[in-house]
């Protein structure tokens, strides 16, 4: 079922910018248009580019956001999320937790 929705109407998750737009909905209660506009502005792409794998693959690699392919050395997990929090200027709970522990 989720794969069907992803193919028919989904942004594509880490293939594109779906995870980033979802973060704006959960951290800022942004509706879809506002969330796309915010992320597009931060990434310096158009809102339509956010669902385009050809554009977003390069953008994600450049910004260190992590991609779906297994690329050695490419940021993954916490490393990618720390970059996402910085570029989108949002708080990501596990990144904040890591910062607190890092200072302790």
């Amino acid at each position: 079922m989720p794969i069907a929705h992803s193919v028919v109407s989904g942004m594509g998750g880490m293939r594109t910018a779906g995870d980033l737009v979802a973060r704006m909905q959960f951290t800022q209660k942004m509706r879809i248009s506002e969330a796309k506009a915010y992320v597009a502005n931060k990434l310096k792409v158009s809102a339509q580019d956010l669902s385009d794998v050809a554009v977003m693959r390069e953008v994600r690699e450049e910004l260190g956001f992590g991609v779906v392919l297994g690329i050695p050395g490419d940021p993954k997990g916490m490393e990618a999320k720390a970059r996402i929090a910085e570029v989108l200027d949002i708080r990501i709970n596990c990144v904040e937790r890591l910062k607190r522990r890092g200072r302790a």
């Binding site: 942004m11 779906g18 737009v21």
Partner: peptide, 10 residues
């Protein structure tokens, strides 16, 4: 499917 650009998050 939806029109290109109309995609939403899941």
């Amino acid at each position: 499917g939806v029109q290109i650009g109309n995609q939403v998050v899941s």
